[in-house]
Design a protein around this nucleic acid. Structure first.
Lengths: 153, 153
DNA sequence: CCCAATGATGGGTGTGCACCTACTAAAGGA
DNA sequence: TCCTTTAGTAGGTGCACACCCATCATTGGG
């Protein structure tokens, strides 16, 4: 009685959605334990990978509303994970930088994400996981470049 | 400036979440045009695949709260997509059945889902899509059987 | 020097989702 | 017959998310 309807299981769309939701949910739970949300991690990752950003750039890169960036950076700042600094050249701009604490935390968060991943991808062999990642990566790139059309809403 | 942080792209978890969200979002948009939500489709699928259900069974199968089932079935009933009938043997129970209109609509919805899928999986060949589906299916089965732990919240 | 454009911010809105709590009707065992 | 359990229903809550608008400071062009 707890089987999922085959009509849905036949849809790759459905499977992506369902497994993706599960993955996101579990990671979000872990983050919540530290008082963080997924966006916080995304911002830390962006800052670590690409260096300091002006808030506008963060909004652009992550496709979030700029007013929401403010709130996320607020949270990170309060936790000492990023530094905010007014741009001396253009004092309207605020440059956000990861602190060492932020970098360190990101490493831990990545480790947690890997743990969640380990759990979720348990049924697959290492080869298969690599395959899955490769396939999803291509889907991801294609989806971003092509259709676009805001995901949310 | 619009590249996604590699720290995230390296996580299969992230890719599943992101692509899954995109997929769900697009399908949800299509459904919304008909005044439906994803749960409506899921219920139609369950009823079509497994035959009539008592509401309790729907709740169990789809892992939704029973009070939410009521609302979903309400909507479907109002649209003439399902029939509600009190069980004569046990008059507490209400058996829900798909109507022909419901079956027909489900077919169309499945077609729409396939269209979305076609769009999203565009970068992949037919072989690769089959591979992806197979991999995700195993992940899905594993995730449900093993970890469980409600996805939401 | 004034004005339009830009960046950050605060505050607020609507939606979907998962959850929970009565309350009613009915069934079924002690 | 009484009492516990089960099914459905109504109504409401909290949260995360995506969006939007108004405001203020600042910049840079005309």
């Amino acid at each position: 009685m707890n089987e999922t309807p085959p009509s849905l299981l036949g849809l790759t769309t459905y499977l992506m959605s369902k497994t993706g939701k599960a993955a996101r949910g579990r990671l979000a739970d872990r983050l919540a334990e530290r008082g963080l949300r997924l966006w916080h991690m995304a911002v830390l990752a962006a800052l670590t990978d690409f260096g300091p950003h002006v808030q506008r750039e963060l909004a652009e890169r992550l496709s979030i509303d700029r007013s929401d960036v403010v709130k996320i950076v607020d949270g990170l700042g309060a936790a000492g994970l990023v530094d905010r600094a007014r741009d001396t050249a253009d004092r309207r701009r605020v440059t956000v930088t990861v602190t060492p604490a932020g970098r360190e935390l990101l490493e831990r968060l990545k480790a947690e994400a890997l743990a969640v991943q380990e759990d979720i991808l348990a049924p697959l062999t290492a080869r298969e996981r690599a395959q899955l990642t490769a396939l999803l990566l291509r889907v991801h790139d294609g989806a971003l470049a092509g259709g676009q059309a805001r995901a949310g809403r």
